[in-house]
């Protein structure tokens, strides 16, 4: 069953075409990897999908319904979530606060002024569970500003999961991680596989081939190939454009 369907998506920055007529599908439960050299337009595509960048053309459907006119927060409510290549966290708040706020956002509007939010069990308990699942239980009370890069990447994922997504858009979750942290991240994503569909942008080819059901290749904003991991690995065009470039 098709969960996400993109058709003819386009984004221009002045003269630069960052995504050019991109069409792509993600099936329910599928891990669909998106690879391509730096500057290919992968981050731009994710921002367009979530609605943080307006698109200049094309359409996006979730479960067959057009969502490209919706604002980012509305798309999140419909089950899209993203992580950021360059982490975007609330650095003055604690790890637990960051996750609990996402839980709170999922529960509806936040025009509640009287109860102390940090004492609401309905926010703290699920948040704590997610923090523990991300392996950050010992750091739950730490300020995000004091976290290591690896911990921030794990928190990014925990926050995205707290929104209760059906489709996760992951922007280079392994970038900047050491080998052990990378392995832990792959394991965490593997645990989610099947339950939550993923569009996985990643340069770490071992991770991509370990996780992905299908792989698409983006070069200069254009989708040059989509297929099973093995087929993509053997595709001459892909080698030329990407794997051969030594970028991986």
């Amino acid at each position: 069953m098709t969960l996400l369907a993109i058709a003819g998506l386009q984004k221009r920055f002045g003269g630069l075409v960052a995504t050019d007529d991109v069409s792509l599908e993600v099936q329910a439960g599928e891990v669909h990897a998106l690879i391509g050299p730096n500057g290919a337009g992968k981050t731009t595509l994710i921002a367009q999908l979530i609605g943080q960048l307006a698109h200049d053309g094309g359409e996006i459907r979730l479960d067959g319904e057009r969502i490209d006119a919706l604002a980012a927060h509305q798309r999140v409510r419909r089950g899209l979530a993203r992580t950021f290549q360059i982490t975007q966290l609330l650095t003055d708040y604690s790890v637990l606060d960051n996750v609990a706020l996402a839980v709170q956002a999922r529960q509806g509007h936040s025009f509640r002024f009287l109860r102390e939010a940090r004492r609401e069990a309905s926010l703290r308990a699920p948040a704590l569970a997610l923090v523990a699942e991300a392996g950050l239980a010992a750091r739950a009370g730490a300020r995000v500003a004091d976290l290591s890069q690896g911990e921030r990447k794990q928190l990014e994922l925990a926050v995205a999961l707290a929104t209760g997504p059906r489709l996760l858009l992951l922007d280079e979750p392994m970038a900047g991680l050491g080998p052990a942290e990378s392995a832990a991240m792959v394991e965490a994503l593997a645990r989610l596989k099947g339950r939550i569909a993923m569009l996985l942008v990643e340069h770490d080819m071992d991770a991509v081939f370990a996780l992905a059901d299908r792989v698409s290749v983006l070069v200069y904003g254009r989708l040059v190939a989509t297929g099973a991991p093995q087929a993509i690995r053997d595709d001459a065009r892909v080698r030329d454009a990407y794997l051969g470039s030594g970028d991986a």
């Binding site: 604002a71 927060h73 993203r82 950021f84 975007q88 609330l90 709170q104 936040s110 509640r112 102390e116």
Partner: peptide
């Protein structure tokens, strides 16, 4: 005092720190 520790207050503080993040968790 009540406002800043409430759900609303935490959202407000989050918006000050990083609006991009707040959008991404579904906050308008």
């Amino acid at each position: 005092w009540r406002i800043v520790v409430s759900r609303f207050g935490l959202i407000l503080g989050g918006l000050r720190q990083n609006e991009t993040r707040m959008e991404a968790i579904g906050v308008a």
